[in-house]
């Protein structure tokens, strides 16, 4: 599975949806994922890829990690996997 598919699988599980229901332009809010769901997703992503995601729930916009859509999350993870491998 590609990084993209693996991230989508994690987000889909959190949203209790099928991966096919997740669109790249969706925001986490669109998918019904709240702040606790977000930190749980980030934890699952860190576990899946053995990376560290620079995300602080107090100031999401200040983090060096863009969570504004599924697309930006995937792009961020692809970059982190490259940097941290």
């Amino acid at each position: 599975m590609s990084i993209k598919d693996r991230v989508i699988a994690i987000i889909a599980e959190q949203a209790v949806l099928e991966p096919s229901d997740i669109a790249l332009e969706n925001t986490l809010e669109d998918l019904g994922i709240d702040s606790l769901g977000l930190v749980e997703s980030i934890f699952a992503i860190e576990e899946e890829f053995d990376i560290s995601v620079p995300f602080n729930a107090n100031e999401p916009s200040e983090s060096d990690f863009d969570i504004s859509s599924v697309r930006t999350i995937i792009a961020g993870i692809e970059r982190l996997v490259k940097e941290q491998s």
């Binding site: 606790l36 930190v39 749980e40 980030i42 934890f43 860190e46 576990e47 560290s52």
Partner: peptide, 9 residues
């Protein structure tokens, strides 16, 4: 080096 985010709650 990491734990599940819900440990505290």
């Amino acid at each position: 080096n990491r734990v599940h985010p819900f440990v505290v709650p």
